[in-house]
């Protein structure tokens, strides 16, 4: 079934290209044609549910950011993954899917918050997890997991407590599993285990 859908889509839309996938049907779609393509997906191919909006940061590669969408068809009971590269590496933008799928609203806000992708045409594109005045997009590759020292917005609370965002102690982390072998033998470990709180200061 996936093969039929795939060839049908690729034949009909010249701008689509096949995308490597180990599970579901996946295509690349240029950002300019995304709205057009998703409208057809929803109305003709019966992909009536938008499950997820996320993005990838490829670090030094160009294009740096790729928006990723997962759609599900409750009629055909199948998934499709649509990926769309952002043209600009500095100020990445994608068209908003809110007019097509209302589910895109909070998903796009989250991706904007954490990845910094601006969804053009979004009715209310503000941060959803971090506070409004937070200056960074923390899931980008150039952002350290521990965080960056940042002032907090509530002045009265800061006045009483001197609270601010401070870089978290990483204890030689981040803690990662080697991922090869049994789970019992590949517990997440710090890369540098010589670290301790005394030395850290």
């Amino acid at each position: 079934m996936n093969e039929i859908e795939k060839s049908e889509l690729l034949d009909r839309f010249a701008y689509l290209s096949e995308r490597d996938s180990s599970d579901h049907l996946a295509v690349n779609c240029p950002a300019d044609q995304l709205i057009e393509f998703c409208t057809v997906l929803r109305d003709e191919f019966q992909f009536d549910m938008l499950l997820d909006v996320t993005a990838i940061d490829w670090d030094v590669a160009t294009p740096r950011f790729t928006g990723v969408y997962h759609f599900y068809s409750t009629v055909k009971q199948m998934y499709i993954r649509v990926a769309s590269d952002c043209k600009d590496n500095i100020k990445p933008t994608l068209p908003s899917l809110v007019p097509l799928y209302s589910a895109a609203d909070w998903h796009e806000r989250e991706t904007y918050d954490l990845m910094g992708i601006v969804y053009e045409g979004h009715p209310n594109l503000k941060r959803i997890l971090m506070w409004d005045s937070y200056p960074y997009h923390p899931l980008r590759k150039d952002f350290p997991l521990a965080g960056i020292e940042t002032p907090l917005p509530a002045e009265d609370i800061v006045g009483q407590t001197n609270l601010k965002v401070a870089a978290a102690p990483m204890m030689g982390g981040p803690f990662v599993s080697s991922g090869d072998g049994k789970m019992s033998q590949t517990e997440p470990k710090a890369k540098d285990e010589s670290w301790n709180e005394e030395k850290g200061k």
């Binding site: 960074y136 350290p144 965080g147 960056i148 407590t161 609270l163 978290a168 981040p174």
Partner: peptide
């Protein structure tokens, strides 16, 4: 140990 989490509520 992350950018979002207060490292101990005794700071507030």
């Amino acid at each position: 140990r992350s950018y979002a989490t207060l490292q101990g509520v005794d700071r507030v």
